[in-house]
Amino acid sequence: MSTAPNSTTFDPAQSGNADSQKRTWLHAVKPARIILYLLLGLFSIYYLLPLYVMVTNSLKPLSEITAGGMMALPQEWTIAPWLSAWSSAQIGVDATGLRPYFINSIVMVVPAVALSTIIGALNGYVLTKWTFRGATVLFGLLLFGCFIPFQMVLIPMARMLGLMGLAGTVPGLIFVHLVYGIGFSTLYFRNYYAAFPTELVRAAQIDGAGFFRIFYRILLPSSGPIAVVCIIWQFTNIWNDFLFGASFSDFDSQPMTVALNNLVQSSHGVKEYNVHFAGAIMAALPTLFVYIVAGRYFVRGLMAGSVKG
């Protein structure tokens, strides 16, 4: 930690004179401050570098990349790699581009997110407002299911999907993501509803409102923020999943991540790096878009999912 510059807030030089403290750190522009911003800037470059590489190289002809110009801006700007990645690049056996797989991912994500969120909300409601003996144990068992290595369920799940007639299909993937998404969505709603005043629920019950009525009229209207957190978390997780997609999909039901990996790892022909980068950005755009628009909720979801088990 010795590289951390002295913060002006805690600067020992000021500590002798507590009175002038506020004034000095507001006005001082010190070398320490400059180093601080310099460091923050350097780290920003580190985090942005791969994004820069992906974007610039997806917009230049292949020859510029192979000639050693990966870090340079394009000399000749072109969107041809994007068009190729979207609709004509070779993926597996077919030259379909990533479009059909992008659509697969959307068809997979929307119902899986919607269903797991709804079920999670109801579960959270029961676990906090209609609690019963053993509810905490049950919740603990549910939560542990979120953290298991999914290698542990791959073999039986493959069989089960076969028995259900869902092997190698998008509905099969929806089912798998729903099953393993419920744990986290329940976690979010349970922790959120735990802080919701139980008196309101009890009062409504005395007034004769039933189980679902209380949920719709009293809890649901104030569930907006946690629903957003949950939807973003599930969306990001399911969109970015690779293991289930690789294990349980066929050529025509692959999600975007699996197709992207096939595009990049394909061994025949010239490696079209610019097309690979364009494809990678396509796979990243939906989650990146959500992050930029609703980053606050994304971070909240991350924290709730990890800090508060």
């Binding site: 780290f43 920003s44 985090y47 942005l48 570098l49 791969p50 994004l51 590489v53 992906m54 190289n57 990966m70 990001t236 969109w239 970015n240 690779f242 991540t257 992207l260 990996n261 990049v264 790096y273 690979h276 980068f277 494809g279 990678a280 950005i281 796979a283 990243a284 989650t287 990146l288 959500v290 992050y291 930029i292 980053g295 994304f298 971070v299 991350l302």
Partner: peptide, 22 residues
């Protein structure tokens, strides 16, 4: 903070592709 945290929103496959060629 947004800059430092955005990689977390990406798929490991995207990260892998970017770093593989870099």
């Amino acid at each position: 903070r947004t800059i430092y945290l955005y990689p977390m929103a990406l798929s490991f496959i995207v990260t892998g592709v970017a770093w593989k060629w870099f």
